[in-house]
C-alpha cells in the first residue's frame, strides 16, 4: 500500500464518519464543523487526484460557508450549545431507506459499471488547463454562473430586507403552537407580562 492509498483511505473514512456525525450530534455548531471536516477530507482526496486548484478552493469556500452556517445555527435553532440531547427528525425510517437505496444503487453502478481507464496525461497542468477552459471555450458557462450569483445576491437582499412592498416583513407574525393547531407559544404571555408591569408602575 502506497502513501497515496493510505492517505486516501484515512481521508475517505474521515469524510464519511464526519458526514454521518453531522446528523448525530446535539450541538448545531459541532454539526456544521463536522460537515467542514467532511469537506476538508474530500478536498485532500481531490489534491491526491491532482486537482490542485479544486481541492484548495474547496477548503476556503467551505471554511467560510460553514462558519456562516454555524452562526445561522446559533441564531435560529433551539439548543444551540448542544447541552441537551436533541433529535429533530421526521419520516426517519423512509429517509434512511432512501439513503441506503441511493448508496446501494450508486455503488452498484460503481462496481458493475464499465468505465474506460484514461488517466490525466503526464504533461498536463490541471490549473492552467482549468483557467484556459474557464476563460476560453466555457466562458459562457462561467459567466452565467457569475450572473446567477449576482442575481442570487439581489434576490437574497430583497427576501431578507426588513421592509417589503407590503409593509414590515414580520407584520402579523405569530409563533407556532406548542402542539399542532394549538395556541401560539410565547407571544401572548409576553404581552401579559408587559401589561402587568404597566400596572405595577401605576
Amino acid at each position: 500500500m502506497t502513501f497515496v492509498d493510505l492517505t486516501f483511505f484515512v481521508c475517505a473514512a474521515i469524510a464519511i464518519y464526519a458526514g454521518w456525525r453531522v446528523f448525530r450530534t446535539d450541538s448545531m455548531v459541532r454539526a456544521s464543523f463536522f460537515l467542514l471536516i467532511s469537506f476538508i477530507a474530500v478536498g485532500i482526496i481531490m489534491l491526491l487526484l491532482a486537482a490542485v486548484y479544486l481541492g484548495v478552493a474547496l477548503f476556503f469556500m467551505m471554511a467560510v460557508e460553514m462558519m456562516v452556517m454555524a452562526l445561522f445555527m446559533m441564531m435560529f435553532m433551539m439548543n444551540p450549545a448542544g447541552l441537551n440531547p436533541m433529535n429533530m427528525v421526521h419520516q426517519e425510517k423512509v429517509a434512511m431507506g432512501i439513503g441506503i437505496a441511493a448508496f446501494v444503487a450508486l455503488s452498484g453502478v460503481a462496481v458493475f459499471g464499465d468505465f474506460p481507464s484514461r488517466p490525466v496525461p503526464d504533461g498536463l497542468d490541471p490549473v492552467v488547463s482549468l483557467g484556459k477552459e474557464l476563460l476560453g471555450n466555457s466562458m459562457l458557462v462561467f459567466e452565467s454562473a457569475g450572473v446567477t450569483l449576482l442575481a442570487t445576491m439581489i434576490g437574497v437582499v430583497a427576501m431578507t430586507s426588513h421592509r417589503g412592498r407590503f409593509g414590515e416583513a414580520n407584520e402579523g407574525s405569530v409563533p407556532p403552537g406548542l402542539e399542532p393547531g394549538g395556541d401560539p407559544a410565547g407571544k401572548p404571555q409576553e404581552n401579559d407580562q408587559k401589561q402587568q408591569g404597566h400596572h405595577h408602575h401605576h
Partner: peptide
C-alpha cells in the same frame, strides 16, 4: 504548491 496563493487564502478562513 502550484496554488500556494490560494492555499494561503484558505488558511485565513480556516
Amino acid at each position: 504548491l502550484t496554488t500556494g496563493i490560494v492555499l494561503w487564502g484558505a488558511l485565513e478562513p480556516l
